[in-house]
Design a protein around this nucleic acid. Structure first.
Lengths: 343, 343
DNA sequence: CTGAAAGCGCTTACAG
DNA sequence: CTGAAAGCGCTTACAG
């Protein structure tokens, strides 16, 4: 290869990487030789010699869930367009894996940067991450990592918007179904969203009623069970439900149907997320920009690495690694919310 | 490290990789030293020296779709449990990316094996893949690659089962909505499923009616549009619809709702897949084991690589790379199918 | 069972 | 702008 082009391997290396210190004529010759020989550099060799891997680890709780697959799709596009590879880690709730991934071992010299999507960390994880000494970014809730930027929405505000919508329709008995405190995949998200629900009730002069607040898992099935429990508690049923995420709202829909209650005539339901299928189900929700969070986080992550990025991160506060970048949410009214029936 | 353990680097290498040619005492000493020094091998260096990457490329059309995210989740678990990394490539319908991924360049020396999920290939792609000379496996439809095993379902049979169900209920005017012939993400899948639909009609003595057969994209929106077109064609509407996949069936549900038609009273709808949300929507469908296809394909792929696998591939025909491994499908009746109304 | 030596295929200072 | 040399940190025959 170097011989065919009549230059040294060092020059081949420079020419192929597009370094500016190569004359146009030389570059042409090298490129032509590479073409002719179908030459491709060995990633392992250049990683070893150069100390960079051109790879980013992306950690998600569950790739099968709407938010995470949407984020990963956007991130994948941005990374590959920037010449980076994406190493996928799906925690899948398996504690072992979580440890293996987050502890030094598996990431050591394997990636140039880390993206953590909604991944809660314990102190030991944070220590391990710090010892890797890699740049990183977090998306959504989960833990903040010192010095890593964070892209997310305001979960408290999103829940307030959802609750406000029901209050505006005239509802008073507004229930809330949310994540299990033991469900490490939900973590801060459901706490923030519950806080928003309660804050908005209080702002309307209502007192949050513990009997209208049920915890379950952050899944369709969890929403189903939480709603069933809500109905089984006796007393007058709620006229509306704020689900902590669309998947739980979907579970609520089935539980209400099974109980013979109509949505929205008997009970209104609103979620948070704007899941792909929210439209199909006619689910009112508070939409959050999942793909955009992924894209933005990828850009913030790669920019300092000198990637061949697609554009500068302009006017984005929070890229300093301290203030989170907050993306906006918005109420989307569909068919699952309506005024309560007149008595 | 080698010094601390009092052995050569070669022995360290052997001990850490668990080669049998190391005495127990030596191994103990090496392990202790590694522990003490927090030593981790450099992947780049061992890849360069050893010629293996410990990485598998997984190519999917769209990670955001149910089938693909489910497959990837299962594959990820199997790969990581076997000590392999997963490099994710999401085609996302972008032709450029597709070329970059499948042509030699990007995969060269980057992975030990390739998994193609429902990825249609053109002759040039096949040539490029062959020149990489890597082991691989394909899942679902898309193209077969010579000598690569294939794990899939029988799409023709699945569509026959769905159609049979409607026939059994007494339907005669059974429509079909399926993929666009130009939609490369659907490719053979929708052709096979249409073939099954038509075959089953014929087996029942009915003639497939072209005016009841609409092509669109393999998505919710595609199902919506196809159904709207079906209804706009005039003439007596169908009493039942076989959708080529659950996502299209969901679109059909919304289109029927928008047209003021009730499911299943006015029109029955059945899909194929058993999407996560099929249950929530009460959608009858023919279920296919997505996670199992992923797991099995991963196993077939890794087994010959001498990975520390979780078990032998026993009794699986087709692992020879010629006969596809066909996994079973099964009818799941929910609320979206019922007998046609009496005239 | 273990070590010395060579080599994997690049990139990086360092000269010029 | 380009080359010679060293080195990245492992693994692999080859001896013993």
């Amino acid at each position: 290869m170097a011989r065919l082009a009549g230059v040294s391997t060092a020059t081949v290396s420079r020419a192929l990487r597009g370094l500016p210190t190569v004359s146009a004529a030389t570059r042409r010759r090298v490129l032509a030789a590479a073409e002719q020989l179908d030459y491709e550099v060995s990633p392992s060799a250049s990683r070893l010699a150069g100390g960079r891997t051109g790879t980013v680890a992306v950690v998600v709780p569950r790739i099968t869930r709407w938010f995470f697959s949407t984020v990963v799709e956007a991130v994948e596009e941005y990374l590959h367009d920037s010449g980076y590879d994406l190493l996928l880690y799906n925690l899948g709730g398996r504690e072992q894996v979580r440890q293996r991934v987050l502890r030094t071992a598996n990431l050591h010299k394997r990636v140039d940067a880390i993206m953590l999507v909604a991944t809660p960390l314990r102190p030991a994880d944070l220590t391990a991450l710090a010892s890797l000494d890699l740049p990183g970014v977090t998306i959504s809730s989960g833990s903040r990592v010192p010095r890593w930027p964070c892209v997310r929405i305001d979960d408290v505000a999103a829940a307030r918007t959802a609750t406000r919508h029901l209050l505006d329709l005239g509802h008073q008995r507004i229930a809330h179904i949310s994540g299990d405190p033991d469900d490490e995949l939900a973590f801060t998200t459901h706490l923030d969203r519950r806080r928003g629900y309660q804050a908005e009730l209080r702002a309307a002069g209502l007192r949050p009623d513990p009997s209208l607040d049920v915890e379950s898992t952050f899944t369709i099935d969890g929403g189903n069970r939480a709603t069933a429990e809500l109905l089984a508690r006796g007393g007058p049923p709620p006229t509306a439900i704020v689900a902590a995420c669309d998947e739980m709202a979907m579970g609520a829909l089935t539980a209400l149907r099974d109980a013979g209650l109509r949505v929205p005539q008997d009970v209104s339901v609103i979620g948070i997320d704007d899941h792909d299928l929210a439209g199909v189900l006619g689910l009112s929700t508070v939409t959050q920009p999942a793909a955009e969070q992924g894209r933005l986080a990828a850009r913030i992550l790669l920019d300092p690495l000198g990637a061949r990025t697609l554009g500068p991160v302009v006017g984005q506060r929070g890229a300093d690694g301290d203030t989170p970048v907050i993306l906006p949410t918005r109420l989307v009214v569909r068919d699952s919310t309506a005024p309560p029936r007149a008595h």
